[in-house]
């Protein structure tokens, strides 16, 4: 897929909130390794998208690890934390782990949280929600 194609915006109405989520086509399903992540460029932003095959779920977060300001979270290992199997990603640098649901750091009190994004998959394409517009 070329860059110009992937930067094409698609506006899809959210059935839950009534507000419109601004979706953008990030990549194809097969671009992201199973049970792993990849980094997507969205304008000046870098977004990490995770194909959590084992759970049949997709997640997306900022690519920047706030601990040492490194653009690497997409290269981290994903897994689960605790009894309730909270999905998480571990930064490759110092193994700070972040919840893929809330973005909170799970193993340090003084580390900032990370931004999370909604993801959906339709006809082999991965869409990331990059903002909300009210109708």
């Amino acid at each position: 897929m070329s860059l110009s194609e992937s930067l094409e915006f698609q506006n899809v109405q959210s059935s839950v909130t009534g507000a419109r989520i601004k979706w953008f086509i990030a990549c194809s399903v097969e671009d992201v390794p199973e049970n792993g992540g990849a980094c997507v460029k969205y304008g000046e932003e870098q977004i990490a998208v995770y194909n959590f095959t084992r759970r049949g779920e997709w997640f997306a977060t900022q690519n920047l690890c706030p601990h040492k300001q490194q653009m690497v979270l997409s290269r981290g290992m994903i897994g689960s934390h605790g009894e309730h199997c909270e999905p998480k990603v571990a930064c490759p640098f110092h193994k700070k782990t972040f919840s893929l649901l809330t973005g909170d750091c799970l193993n340090s009190d003084d580390c900032e949280s990370i931004k999370t994004y909604p993801v959906k998959v339709k006809e082999g394409k991965v869409y990331i929600g990059v903002g909300i517009e009210t109708i």
Binding site: R54, M77, G79, P87
Partner: peptide, 15 residues
Amino acid sequence: LNLYGKGDGCEVCKP
């Protein structure tokens, strides 16, 4: 993981 573990794994057991 299916046979002997539980949950979805982590950065300790995977490597």
